[in-house]
């Protein structure tokens, strides 16, 4: 193989990769609500809301979020969240997600449990 052929191979890989990316890429997280995430398993979205209560914040964070509806959010990192903080949450409705905190189990059965990829204080 000579340098010209190698250049051509690199060019083909570049174009093929860009086409594959353009065809497969979809934004994973778009603005959503707790109600919308609750309607479909494995859905993802960005939630904006107020922290009603922080159950734990170290080494993981477990809190309830209110955006008009209430959900329990599990975030696998420590935070400094406090009650009444406004937050932006990149959340997923993982059907297998179960909270381990006993007090959370006492919550009403209809409350949604969500997994957070990222939580940002606003």
């Amino acid at each position: 193989m000579n340098d010209t052929q190698l250049t051509q191979i690199c060019f083909i890989i570049t174009i093929a990769g860009m086409v594959a990316l353009a065809l497969t890429y979809e934004p994973q997280f778009e603005n959503s609500t707790i109600t919308q995430l609750g309607e479909k398993e494995n859905s993802k979205g960005i939630l904006f809301g107020r922290v009603i209560a922080v159950i734990e914040n170290y080494p993981i964070t477990l809190f309830t979020l209110d955006d008009g509806n209430v959900a329990l959010i599990y975030y696998p990192r420590a935070t400094t969240l406090e009650q009444n903080d406004f937050v932006k949450v990149y959340a997923e409705n993982r059907s297998e997600q179960q909270p381990t905190n006993p007090s959370a189990i006492k919550k009403p059965k209809k409350q949604l449990n969500l997994y957070a990829q990222k939580v940002e204080k606003q």
Binding site: I9, G17, L21
Partner: peptide, 12 residues
């Protein structure tokens, strides 16, 4: 996919 594409760009 991004890394494969970047490899093509890098090589080129």
């Amino acid at each position: 996919l991004a890394m494969v594409t970047a490899a093509g760009i890098g090589g080129l």
